[in-house]
Simulated scan of single mutants.
Amino acid sequence: MAIADAVMNAADTNTDGVLSQDEYVAMYEVLGVSPEHSVPAFARLDVDVDGVICHHEYRTAIVDFYLSTDPNAPGNYLLGPVAA
């Protein structure tokens, strides 16, 4: 999961090793995801509800996004809702 770690490290602007909600929202805003979608996604990805996303939570979300068959898996909210 080196790519996920590299993305996280790049977005971790205060270099504390985790993503705050502001860092997460800024990262996805660059990709065209509005805060309307990234703020609720952050809440879903912060599985331990400590107010930050750690490397483990982000890696798990990436795996969920690509491999989960559970439509409610937190990682399936990385980029906001998908229109059918």
Results as ranks from 00 to 15, higher is better:
1 M>I: 10
1 M>K: 13
2 A>K: 13
3 I>W: 09
4 A>E: 06
5 D>M: 12
6 A>S: 14
7 V>K: 11
7 V>G: 07
7 V>P: 00
8 M>L: 15
9 N>D: 15
11 A>G: 06
11 A>E: 08
11 A>T: 03
11 A>Q: 08
14 N>R: 12
14 N>C: 10
14 N>M: 12
14 N>A: 10
17 G>I: 04
17 G>S: 06
18 V>I: 10
19 L>H: 05
19 L>G: 04
21 Q>L: 15
22 D>S: 15
23 E>H: 05
23 E>N: 09
24 Y>M: 09
24 Y>W: 14
24 Y>I: 11
25 V>G: 09
25 V>M: 07
26 A>Y: 02
27 M>T: 03
28 Y>S: 06
29 E>H: 04
31 L>D: 00
31 L>K: 02
31 L>A: 06
32 G>A: 01
33 V>H: 04
33 V>S: 00
34 S>A: 11
36 E>W: 04
36 E>H: 11
37 H>G: 04
37 H>S: 14
37 H>T: 05
38 S>N: 05
38 S>A: 14
38 S>H: 09
39 V>Q: 15
40 P>G: 11
41 A>S: 15
41 A>G: 08
41 A>Q: 06
42 F>V: 07
43 A>G: 12
43 A>F: 07
43 A>E: 13
43 A>K: 15
45 L>M: 10
45 L>T: 04
45 L>P: 01
46 D>W: 09
46 D>T: 02
48 D>L: 07
48 D>C: 06
48 D>S: 02
49 V>D: 14
50 D>T: 08
50 D>M: 04
52 V>S: 07
52 V>F: 03
52 V>L: 01
53 I>H: 07
53 I>Y: 03
54 C>H: 10
57 E>Q: 13
59 R>L: 13
59 R>A: 15
59 R>I: 13
61 A>E: 01
61 A>Q: 01
61 A>R: 00
62 I>D: 07
62 I>S: 05
65 F>L: 08
66 Y>E: 09
66 Y>I: 10
67 L>Y: 13
68 S>I: 05
71 P>Y: 01
72 N>E: 14
73 A>C: 11
74 P>L: 04
74 P>Q: 06
76 N>V: 03
76 N>Y: 05
78 L>P: 00
78 L>K: 00
78 L>H: 02
79 L>W: 11
79 L>S: 01
80 G>K: 03
83 A>L: 13
84 A>S: 12
84 A>M: 05
